[in-house]
Design a binder for these strands. Sequence first.
DNA 1: CTGGTAAACGAACGTTCGTGCTTTTTTATA
DNA 2: TATAAAAAAGCACGAACGTTCGTTTACCAG
Lengths: 190, 190
Amino acid sequence: MTPVTQKGSETRASILDRAVDLASVEGLEGLTIGRLATELRMSKSGLFAHFGSKQELQLATVEAAALRFRDKVIVPSLDAPEGAPRIRAMGNRYLDQMGDYSGGCFWAATSAEYDDRPGPVRDAIASALDAWLGELERQARVAGVERPERFAFELYALIMGVNSRYRLSGDERVFEYAREALDRLLAELP
Amino acid sequence: MTPVTQKGSETRASILDRAVDLASVEGLEGLTIGRLATELRMSKSGLFAHFGSKQELQLATVEAAALRFRDKVIVPSLDAPEGAPRIRAMGNRYLDQMGDYSGGCFWAATSAEYDDRPGPVRDAIASALDAWLGELERQARVAGVERPERFAFELYALIMGVNSRYRLSGDERVFEYAREALDRLLAELP
DNA sequence: CTGGTAAACGAACGTTCGTGCTTTTTTATA
DNA sequence: TATAAAAAAGCACGAACGTTCGTTTACCAG
């Protein structure tokens, strides 16, 4: 009979959960199988067997980060009506989550790490970010923005800028600046 | 008699020049003494002797990157009058230089790498970026901007956003978006 | 109870990392 | 040109990296 939950997939999920946190701090190259195993009180080889190679672990980590992003930012914003309210909801969700204890933004860390490093990992990161930009653009279009790609870029830049400045200088005023700038962007709507 | 140029300091300079390029791609952790030595056709130990530790090499690399930034972005902008014209000049210089040779922006790569990694290297990166933000802020103040810190943050976010998006997606429209947004920011001036 | 399979393990591999020591080569000046 | 200092190289180290191997444990089907 087919078991309802395989033991292995639970382990795999808990590995990836920790891997996303670790990679947010150390990067996907700095993410080390040995360290991951130590933190999870597993053997290196046992952990390794779940993925077969470091690159497969990295790709699985990117995928897990995308799922977490969906859960923490996208899904909770679906309550808000499409267009301006949802844009505001997503922006706020993202900014809120950034102040968390968590190791900073996975996407800011890894996209900067891989932007000059061709390969499947970079491609996975790029397509996840493209999807996020695309969603922002789609909502901007619904909101009646005249140039949705420009709008999406500016919003993206603001959010990444907040992450960068807040993480490095600890200056909390940047949250205020970003929310004001978002207001200014949304105020242009017809 | 005092020699006009010491051999060692030339070598050191050429090491750091290459180190900045390498760190822009691989990060300051991925910057490896062995690889640096191989590329410069030196022995690991000979190169190592110039710095004494990897951390000293990293700190010297940050310093060299700051000097290069000064030469490529700040100094050429000093022709422009202070205030709005100089802000525009610095922004354009930065954007121009970004399309240059591969390697991307040293500061974008390393600040994301070290924002969760306490220590002297992080401090050096942070203070260099603070100086850059401070200069933007100072020019904004001269230009009569009502809230120079907010202005400086938005400009910083735009420039880093361009770097991030251009490096990852190759979309050249972001340059246009950023220049438009800068125009919009400057148009608010009294 | 038995047999088979999935999961985790411990040990070891070859390589590369940063870092010491010692020796050789190069450079600058008396 | 001789010589002392500076620069570079050679060699070796312990640790950590990703990876492979053979083995042991846990679980479920017959």
